[in-house]
Design a protein around this nucleic acid. Sequence first.
DNA 1: ACTTACGGTAAGTTTATACTTACGGATAAA
DNA 2: TTTATCCGTAAGTATAAACTTACCGTAAGT
Lengths: 107, 107
Amino acid sequence: MSVSAKAFNALGDPTRRFIFEKLRDRPLAVVDIADGLPVSRPAVSQHLKVLKEAKLINLKIVGNKNIYEVNREGILAMRNYLDRFWSEALDNFKKLAEQTEKENKQE
Amino acid sequence: MSVSAKAFNALGDPTRRFIFEKLRDRPLAVVDIADGLPVSRPAVSQHLKVLKEAKLINLKIVGNKNIYEVNREGILAMRNYLDRFWSEALDNFKKLAEQTEKENKQE
DNA sequence: ACTTACGGTAAGTTTATACTTACGGATAAA
DNA sequence: TTTATCCGTAAGTATAAACTTACCGTAAGT
């Protein structure tokens, strides 16, 4: 599974998007991330694992605290996927247009 | 629910990503999209509905055929979300750094 | 040393969602 | 004007994934 696929999957869940956006403001320890969320702390841990494997966040262990912060890598992977997707779609669109034009002249 | 949230949710599913990428090559009717996929045609219809509501594809009805094609709007919504996300994360990072510096001088 | 705070993982439950079959309406072909 | 093709929706099922409680190890305070 590619990084971008993992990232899309990770951000597909609203709770994970919420956590991700919380970390946009500042790096936070797990308890602080869980604070205010309507789910248990272990649930948050599981979400963090998914976000981390998608390279959307990374971990810094400081003493007994696990500090998570946003990671650009996953963001870039998605961005690149989208940019490439659209440029390829445009290319294909042009090719199809040319082909259709040829077929029309033949008739 | 915002367009970008819907789009992330839509591309979170591997079958929908597959369909989306199939439509990148060319616009296709529903039967042609379903052809080769390991799921039933109604399942494909349901996926198409989700992708359509996320503005990732749109529909052109031609006779009795429903032709789906990629739509840039959903793609742009995600791209904008990611770009803004990262620039805001950078801003916050700078502010935090300045604040930390001040606190260090005070001590 | 003891106690408290932090947080990951395991195991099981619940809920969401992806899927199926069955159906019906609309257009196109015979 | 039948008959076939196309495809959306409804209803129910099956599966995935989000969640819970319980537990344990580690680090930090007392």
